[in-house]
């Protein structure tokens, strides 16, 4: 990763305020600035309620900031249209969740191939790539299994394969090891942090696990609505 590369994802002065009905406004984020380059891995950590999930939503385009902007390859995200942002996510971002969010009626192969199919790739070609990725995460023998037939760690590995299937530039993983035992968590972490180097993607991991966060090249801590960079 070269520091001279232009940022892939950039946040400039992000503010987010929530106003629950009949209550006072809550300022969750207060002027967050952040830049992430291709091939870079970063971690966002912080205690529960610190605003790291809110920041993730803003960066993934599932929510719009109250103020400030999110830039993608130097251009603002197609705001405020959620639909256009969703399509941007489909082509550019791979998401990994704590609860995996796999489709229970689809096999591991079908789950992993889904983003490619939705992007219009021929189904067979999509499944070929998904099969290769599942092989890469060690599930080459379990292509035909449904999520209910896989362990938590295996399900998360299917989610990683799915996040990579459509060759995204950015992968956002929200508490990817939160539901896993230590052995599975270690394997998933190994896989995740190898992605920037092997696939050239930018990786943003959201976690409260400082050990996991410590494996990223950059580590920000969300504190009082602002980002504080943690030195390695």
């Amino acid at each position: 990763m070269s520091p001279d590369l232009p940022p892939l994802l950039e946040a400039r002065g992000l503010y987010k305020t929530f106003t629950p009905p009949g209550r006072e406004s809550v300022q969750v984020l207060e002027g967050v600035d952040l830049a992430l380059r291709a091939g870079e891995s970063a971690a966002l950590s912080g205690p529960s309620g610190s605003g790291k999930s809110t920041l993730t939503h803003l960066l993934a385009g599932t929510e719009a900031p109250t103020a400030g902007e999110v830039l993608w390859r130097g251009a603002p995200l197609p705001a405020p249209h959620l639909e256009a942002r969703a399509l941007w996510r489909l082509s550019e971002v791979g998401l990994i969740f704590q609860d995996f969010r796999l489709f229970p009626h689809l096999t591991a192969l079908e789950n992993a191939a889904l983003p490619l199919e939705l992007l219009g790739e021929p189904p067979r070609a999509a499944e070929e790539r998904a099969g290769a990725l599942l092989g890469e995460v060690g599930l080459g023998e379990r292509l035909g299994h449904r999520p209910s037939e896989l362990s938590g760690g295996e399900q998360q590995r299917v989610a990683i394969a799915r996040a990579l299937a459509h060759r995204p530039a950015l992968i956002i993983a929200d508490e990817p090891t939160g539901n896993l035992d230590w052995r599975s968590a270690a394997r998933v972490a190994d896989l995740l942090f190898a992605l920037p180097e092997r696939h050239g993607v930018a990786l943003l991991v959201v976690t409260h696990d400082l050990t996991l966060a410590g494996r990223a090249t950059r580590h920000w801590r969300v504190q009082g609505g602002r980002l504080v960079e943690v030195e390695a």
Binding site: L87, L90, S91, H105, L106, E110, L114, E117, L118, L119, G120, E121, P122, P123, R124, A125, E127
Partner: peptide, 20 residues
């Protein structure tokens, strides 16, 4: 499944998802 690809979120992909 044997068919060709198409545009993003094309009808064929949508139908296949619904069928599955």
């Amino acid at each position: 499944r044997r068919g060709a690809g198409g545009a993003t979120l094309n009808r064929r992909a949508a139908l296949r998802f619904a069928l599955r």
